[in-house]
C-alpha cells in the first residue's frame, strides 16, 4: 500500500496523469459540443481511430508531424460531417449511425493499414513523425511542478487551451449561443430563425475535429505508431466524462482528469503484483462508478427541487379548501 502511495505522490505520476488525460479531454470536449447542439456523437471512438491512422499516414508521407496533425483533424471533421449527413439528411437514428461509423472505423482502419503498411496490427513500417514536446521555460525549473507540468507533448497544452476556447466559443460567441439554443429547444431556436440542421451539422463537424485532435495525439504523441483499436474505449469514456461533468467545459475538464487519474493509476499499478486484468479494468470500472455517482446525486437534487416546488401549491390548495 505504501508503495502505491509513493508511486502516486511522485511528481512523475502527475506528469503521467496529464499525459493520459489528453486524448480523453479532447474527446470529452467533442462530446460536449455535439451534446450542446442536442445531437449525440457516439462515434468519437471511431473518429479518433480514423484520425490516429490519418495522422500517421500523412506524417509519414510528408515527413512533417504538423501536416499529419492537420490531416488528422480534417479527417476527424469529415467523419463528423459524415455522421451528421447520415443522421440529419438520411435520417438514420444517430446512435445507429454512430455504431455504424465505429464499426467502419474499427475494420476500415485495419483494412487501410494493411494496404498502406502491409500489416494488420501496427504501423511500425511507416516512418511516421511525432509531435514535439514543449519545455516551458520558467515552470520547468520549479522542482515538483516543473516535472509535472513541463515537457509535455504540445497537444497536451492544446487540450487545456481547448477547454478555455470551448468555453469562450459556447458561452461568449453568437454561434455558441445558437448551438446552445438548438440543443435547449430546437423548435424555439427555429422560430427565431436559427437553421437547426445547419447548426447541428456544424456541431458534429466540430465535435469530430476535436476527436481528431485526440486521435492525432494517440498515434503521434502518446505513442509513435498506429495500432489496431488503439483508442480502447476512450471515446466511450469521454461520453461518460461529459455527462458527469454536467455538460460544461470546466466540468468536462475535471472529469477527464479524474478518468485520466484512473488510467494513469492502472498504468502505474502494472508495475506491482496485482493481477493485470484487474488493473486494466480500473478505468472502465471507475467510469461506471463515476457515472452512477453523478446520476445518483443528480436525481436526488431533481427530486428535492420537485418536492420543494410541489410543496408550495399543495399548501395553498389546502388552505384554499378550508376557506370555502
Amino acid at each position: 500500500m505504501n508503495q502505491v502511495f509513493s508511486l502516486i505522490f511522485a511528481p512523475e505520476f502527475g506528469y503521467s496523469v496529464l499525459r493520459v488525460t489528453t486524448p480523453i479531454m479532447f474527446a470529452t470536449l467533442g462530446a460536449l459540443i455535439s451534446d450542446k447542439a442536442g445531437v449525440m456523437n457516439i462515434a468519437l471512438e471511431g473518429i479518433m481511430l480514423i484520425s490516429a491512422l490519418t495522422g500517421v499516414v500523412f506524417s509519414a508521407l510528408t515527413g512533417s508531424s504538423g501536416v499529419g496533425l492537420l490531416a488528422a483533424v480534417l479527417a476527424g471533421g469529415l467523419a463528423g460531417l459524415f455522421l451528421a449527413y447520415c443522421a440529419l439528411k438520411l435520417k438514420t437514428d444517430i446512435i445507429l449511425s454512430g455504431i455504424a461509423l465505429n464499426l467502419m472505423a474499427s475494420g476500415g482502419t485495419v483494412f487501410a493499414l494493411f494496404l498502406i503498411a502491409g500489416d494488420k496490427g501496427i504501423s511500425s513500417s511507416l516512418a511516421s513523425k511525432v509531435l514535439p514536446k514543449l519545455t516551458i521555460p520558467g515552470i520547468s525549473s520549479i522542482p515538483v511542478l516543473g516535472t509535472m507540468l513541463s515537457g509535455h507533448n504540445v497537444l497536451t497544452y492544446v487540450a487545456f487551451l481547448m477547454v478555455a476556447a470551448t468555453f469562450v466559443f459556447l458561452y461568449r460567441t453568437p454561434l455558441g449561443l445558437r448551438i446552445r439554443a438548438v440543443g435547449e429547444n430546437p423548435n424555439a431556436a427555429a422560430s427565431v430563425g436559427i437553421g437547426v440542421t445547419k447548426i447541428q451539422y456544424l456541431a458534429l463537424t466540430l465535435s469530430g475535429m476535436m476527436a481528431g485532435f485526440g486521435g492525432a495525439y494517440m498515434s503521434m504523441g502518446y505513442v509513435s505508431w498506429f495500432s489496431k483499436n488503439m483508442t480502447a474505449g476512450r471515446g466511450f469514456i469521454a461520453m461518460a466524462a461529459e455527462a458527469m461533468g454536467g455538460a460544461t467545459p470546466l466540468g468536462s475538464m475535471l472529469t477527464s482528469l479524474l478518468f485520466g487519474f484512473f488510467d494513469a493509476l492502472s498504468n502505474t499499478l502494472q508495475l506491482m503484483k496485482i493481477p493485470s486484468e484487474f488493473v486494466n479494468m480500473l478505468p472502465y470500472a471507475a467510469t461506471v462508478i463515476g457515472l452512477v455517482l453523478y446520476t445518483v446525486q443528480k436525481t436526488r437534487k431533481e427530486r428535492l427541487a420537485r418536492e420543494s416546488a410541489g410543496a408550495a401549491p399543495a399548501v395553498t390548495g389546502a388552505t384554499a379548501g378550508k376557506k370555502e
Partner: peptide, 13 residues
Amino acid sequence: EFVALIQGTIIIL
C-alpha cells in the same frame, strides 16, 4: 476487414 465497411453501409441505409 473490408466487410466492416459493407456492414456500416448496410446499417446506415
